Simulated assay, not measured.
Amino acid sequence: MSALVRFEVMDGVATITLDRPEVRNAVDLATAKAIAAALDEFDARDDVLAGVFAANGPVFSAGMDLKAFAATGERPVVPDRGAFGIVERPPVKPLIAAVEGRALGGGFEIALACDLIVASRSALFGLPEVKRGLVAAAGGVLRLPSRIPRNVAMELVLTGNPIDATTAHRWGLVNHVVSDGRAVDEARVLAARIAVNAPLAVRTAKFLIDAGAHWPADEAFARQESHVDVCRKSADAAEGARAFAEKRAPAWTGT
């Protein structure tokens, strides 16, 4: 994809890797554009069903590249996808953050823009913006309260103090805690478990979880019906039933 972000595909799973370890995988405008381009390819490719967002080196991401901002004044914001090339419009396919080391500030917000998180035991998550007179406005204050209890999110945001992977797992923020150095491999295993399922059904289920959180409770079932009906009438739904009856693996077409 670029010297800043690597894009690799294997067995239906894409791995998008930040590759700026010399600056703790901080994101400047060029890197944000590379992330957005990788997500565009991820969404567009029919041979890719799930993805992993990873980083090269001992730090997942330190967030915005402050040195680049000071030098050029450019913020790492991409039209349509937003800050860091991901936070305002994440991909339509499931994306798993594989976090090794620190995910602080914008790095944490990138992980929050993903659907699932696999973290190494030494990983740290934090939104230290208030310690610098700022607000975690790239999804931190908006997404974190929907991922963990509100009072816990409030403490993290208002103190700016980080939590470790074990604590994040206890609060339900992290799906799996693994040995150091194993986050990417375990995230790929989890992505592969998703990728064997019907592509249309997976995308629709992800959309409904995200959208349904904002629907009035008394309208939710009615609002989901048109989306569910497309899956119900799809070729993949018919294939899934046939495969179950014939005791074989289904051959999905995504239609």
Rank of each mutant, 00 (worst) to 15 (best):
V13C: 08
R242H: 04
G126K: 07
L4H: 08
R102A: 04
L127D: 02
T255Y: 06
A191M: 12
A83L: 14
W252M: 02
A98R: 08
W215F: 04
G73A: 12
P58C: 01
G181M: 13
E88I: 06
R102L: 04
F207E: 08
F69G: 09
E109Y: 10
A32V: 11
P90M: 14
A68I: 05
L4W: 00
V99I: 05
L116D: 00
H169G: 03
G172R: 02
A137S: 15
S234H: 00
P79V: 08
C114H: 04
V184D: 12
A97K: 01
A111Y: 03
P250F: 00
P250A: 06
R150A: 11
L4V: 11
K233V: 00
A241E: 06
I209F: 07
A165C: 02
A26V: 12
V228D: 04
A217G: 09
A14Q: 13
S61W: 02
E109P: 06
V177F: 08
A222G: 06
P94G: 08
R20I: 07
A235G: 14
L134H: 04
L142C: 07
P145S: 13
D185P: 11
E239D: 06
V152Q: 01
S2K: 03
A191D: 11
F108G: 08
E22F: 14
L158E: 14
G160S: 14
T167M: 14
V177T: 10
K33P: 10
R147Y: 01
F69C: 11
E219P: 10
D40G: 15
A220Q: 07
C114S: 10
V174H: 00
D236Y: 04
N161V: 07
K67H: 15
G212R: 05
N25W: 05
A195F: 10
P128R: 01
T166N: 03
V5K: 05
F53H: 02
D11T: 05
A235E: 08
N161L: 12
A71F: 11
E225S: 00
F84G: 13
A38T: 10
S146E: 03
V228H: 02
T72P: 04
L18Q: 01
V48K: 14
T255A: 12
I96S: 14
S146R: 13
A238I: 10
